Computed example of a mutant assay.
Amino acid sequence: MRVGVIGGGIVGLAIGAELLRRGADVTVYDPAPDGTDGAWHVAAGMLAPGGESVFEFPQLERLLEASNQLWPEFAAALGDVGYDDAGTLGVALTADDVAEMAREWKHQKLSPLTGSQLRDLSPALSPRIRAGAYSPTERQVDPRRVVNALRGVLDGRFVQAEVGAVAALPEDRIVVAAGCGTAGLTGLPIRPVKGQVLRLRGEPGLLRHVIDGAADGRHVYLVPRADGEVVVGATQEERTDRHPTAGGVHDLLRAALDLVPGLAEHELTEVTVGHRPGTPDNAPIIGHFRDNVYVAAGHHRNGVLLTPITARLVADLVLTGTADPIIDDFTPGRFGCA
């Protein structure tokens, strides 16, 4: 079977690689197959199924957890993609921050930790931190390494092209996984949600765990890499521009330094702006669209985490026509567009 995948981001590439592994003849269409315009390039790579998304769309939790369980095998098959299972420390600076973060900790059934207990685990944390929790099931991966590995798997199967109409492609089945660009190809309600992310660099070892915290009402996450890079994110703005702002950078740096003062000595190496593909309910769209067309888009904040299960579910659907019931709540038809 010949399958065309529109979109060379992390989700589209993973779908293409899974279809190829199962014997399909795959072609990936992307206007810039070696580019860095996708949300994956900005993403920090937190694999955190118990975050805020489950409160917005409770049915999403089962999908997130199922994909999180697939990540160890998925990462191992790709090689060194920065996969790390040290876990996440949730932290809160003030009493109001504790009240905000406690909802997530309670939902995840995590035992609360005092500030001193947190600093025993991560000495770089500020002595001002009041409380927190440790989540051992949350992980991280480097999305840029994942994309490079997937590009290697699909080498020679890229067509550099801007697809204007799905019907113009010659393949037997078409998967539209073009992120925010999916809206123009399908009419599905996918909007760009702007996010600003910083990258700092210093001596390795300042942080071992991912830090997910609140500082004076500002939410921030810090994702440390083995080479000394720390990814700091992220703003969430209902805007379509790609301009970094002084306010966005200030808010991220202030919260990061409040939680981990030692980051003040790190070099600010990158300020990046990207767009998460959001839907009206901020849950993904996965499933059969119409005729020979399938959709995998709108993953919003969870694109990296949901990559393995999206690839598996879409490949099942395209090759066998059978849909796993786990995607019943995420089909294109829920918006009346299919």
Rank of each mutant, 00 (worst) to 15 (best):
V3M: 02
G7E: 01
G12L: 01
G12P: 03
I15G: 00
E18I: 07
L19M: 09
R21K: 08
G23P: 05
G23Q: 03
T27V: 15
A43W: 13
G50L: 15
G51V: 12
G51Y: 11
G51C: 13
E56A: 12
E56I: 11
L60T: 09
L63V: 08
A66R: 11
N68T: 01
E73A: 11
F74E: 00
A77T: 02
A86I: 01
A86K: 11
G87I: 00
V91E: 07
L93C: 13
M101I: 13
M101P: 06
E104R: 13
G115T: 06
S116L: 06
L118Y: 09
L118N: 05
S126M: 02
A131E: 15
V141G: 13
R157H: 12
R157T: 05
R157P: 04
R157D: 07
F158W: 03
A161G: 00
A161Y: 10
V166W: 07
L169E: 01
P170Y: 02
P170Q: 06
V175P: 05
G179T: 03
L185I: 04
V193E: 15
G205L: 10
L206A: 07
V210E: 12
G217K: 03
V223N: 01
R225M: 03
R225K: 07
A226E: 06
E229T: 07
V231W: 14
E237R: 07
E237T: 05
T240C: 02
T245N: 09
G248N: 00
D251A: 11
A256Q: 01
A256S: 11
H266A: 12
T269L: 05
G274E: 02
H275F: 15
H275A: 15
P280C: 12
D281K: 13
N282T: 10
P284K: 11
Y294N: 07
V295I: 13
G298K: 14
T322R: 13
C337M: 14
